[in-house]
């Protein structure tokens, strides 16, 4: 027996969820689908290729308050702030599920833990949603993810006929299934068969794009002319890194009013010109060339050296949104082509 959530019960599922959790879900707003906290199940949509913004926003928010401080009479009081909540994020696509596992490594492994992220991770239940029709910018399969991959979800929904086949993957997923128990029907559905169908779906772009050997090839491409060819068109904006579900760079800033204040941890982007500018003006990445190189080397080489995986899940956001087409696919193709033939400049 497999649990199934009938299509007609989706709103109730979200409502029951909200009895115990706060809800973040895809909402259509002024022509774009964004992930947003919502209290209105009616506003939640499921007919999107993927959300413009990614679930990382709710684990690694653009602005996180780290601590408060207060100066009084020659004393300083520092009071750590921790995120309090219990949240469900609904409708996360497989590529974005995969991205959480990639950021986990950065914030969890090594000598130190990034506790703000981990607190949110621990208290959030992720509901994944398998993709029925991958789009022209999707290339998850390039990175071994499929339209049906549940890795990273606590509870996975596979759209099937008039409902969603439910797979419970973790304790948190189990708790949510119990919370919404009355809505889930036990049906005679072969979960493995359903999953298999999604795993086998064609992802046209991804199926033809391979990253095999790209990291190794890039070991020798730091000084390759490709960076000078690709970078002039970059606008140096934050679109690619802010929308990317795997980018995770940040900076810190203090805000004060009188003798009290907060320290905030804010998103930052390696594509911004002041990202590595030091006091005195020295900047090891002074031009777009170094900055564009950093973005792609980080994802396709440095991260691989540190964690053994590529820092991209083929979500396609940079393809869809970079105003000048400086995309992951484009760069992987360039790297694949380099060496096998004379690199055609700029194309």
């Amino acid at each position: 027996m497999t649990k199934v959530l009938p299509q007609g019960k989706l709103k109730d599922f979200l409502k029951d969820t909200m009895d115990k959790y706060s809800l973040v879900a895809p909402v259509r707003e002024d022509g774009v689908v964004v992930l947003k906290p919502t209290a209105d199940p009616e506003a939640v949509v499921t007919d999107y290729l993927n959300t413009v913004t990614s679930p990382k926003d709710f684990f690694f928010p653009q602005t996180e308050r780290m601590f408060r401080f207060q100066k009084t009479e020659g004393k300083i009081r520092v009071e750590e702030t921790t995120w309090q909540g219990k949240r469900v994020i609904f409708g996360v696509r497989p590529c974005d599920l995969g991205s959480l596992e990639l950021i986990d490594r950065v914030f969890q492994e090594g000598e130190y833990e990034e506790t703000y992220y981990l607190a949110r991770r621990e208290n959030t239940t992720v509901v994944g949603l398998a993709c029925s029709s991958p789009g022209p910018t999707c290339f998850c399969t390039t990175f071994g993810i499929t339209p049906g991959s549940p890795e990273g979800a606590d509870l996975m929904l596979y759209p099937d006929g008039e409902g969603f086949v439910v797979e419970v993957l973790t304790e948190k997923g189990e708790a949510l299934a119990q919370q919404t128990e009355t809505l889930l029907e036990d049906q005679d559905v072969d979960l493995a068969e359903v999953k298999g169908r999604f795993e086998g779906l064609k992802v046209p772009l991804g199926d033809h794009l391979s990253v095999d050997g790209v990291a190794a090839k890039l070991d020798g491409m730091f000084e390759h002319p490709v960076w000078a060819e690709l970078s002039p068109r970059c606008l140096g904006c934050g679109i690619c890194t802010y929308l990317c579900p795997t980018c995770h760079c940040f900076g810190m800033t203090d805000e004060v009013r009188g003798d009290q204040g907060v320290r905030l941890r804010c998103w930052d982007s390696c594509q911004f010109s002041d990202f590595t500018r030091m006091a005195g003006g020295h900047n090891p990445r002074p031009t777009k060339k170094e900055r564009v190189r950093q973005r792609f080397m980080h994802k396709l080489n440095y991260y691989v050296h540190r964690f053994g995986r590529y820092l991209c899940t083929g979500c396609g956001r940079c393809l869809e949104k970079c105003p000048v087409g400086l995309t992951m696919v484009h760069v992987i193709e360039k790297v694949n082509d380099s060496g096998t033939r004379e690199v055609a400049v700029n194309e």
């Binding site: 707003e29 653009q62 606008l235 904006c237 934050g238 679109i239």
Partner: peptide, 12 residues
């Protein structure tokens, strides 16, 4: 509230 402050609008 939806703005990302990515500054693409400014940069272009």
């Amino acid at each position: 509230e939806r703005c990302l402050r990515c500054y693409a609008c400014r940069n272009v």
